[in-house]
Design a protein around this nucleic acid. Structure first.
Length: 111
DNA sequence: TTTATGACTTTAA
DNA sequence: ATTAAAGCCATAA
């Protein structure tokens, strides 16, 4: 294993605070590959091959849309997970996305 | 090595 | 405002 791009994505996603969500672009930017937003989602699609639990349901597109809900087995599972964390999902979209948004860059602030 | 794909993003019409 | 097309990077085949 080298410096897996995927591994970095997993680390960031695992650090997403409870009840918070972020976007692929934000993660990609944090990893230094601002234009590989697709890779972030792609990495998450591969997370099934990885071990450990990754709260991938907290990663949405920049619209707050549940783009990857289909990968959770059930199209409603992701939505339920988010609602279970105290947010409201309407039409596959998180209400007050900005309010629940969390940027991984805040990790550097704390450190 | 080259081609195809993807849980995105941005820009243009 | 909504819809369509192109751009971009990393991995798999």
């Amino acid at each position: 294993m080298q410096d897996d791009f995927f591994q970095r994505v997993y680390e960031v996603v695992e650090r997403i605070p409870w009840g918070k969500v972020t976007s692929y672009g934000a993660i990609a930017r944090y990893l230094g590959t601002a234009r590989s937003s697709r890779m972030v989602g792609w990495a998450l699609s591969n997370l099934r091959h990885s071990e450990g639990y990754i709260p991938a349901h907290r990663v949405l597109n920049r619209n707050g849309q549940l783009s990857g809900k289909a990968a959770f087995g059930s199209d409603t599972l992701m939505q339920e997970l988010l609602e279970n964390e105290g947010m409201v999902v309407v039409n596959d979209q998180v209400v007050d996305f900005k309010g629940h948004f969390w940027d991984p860059v805040e990790l550097d602030k704390e450190m």
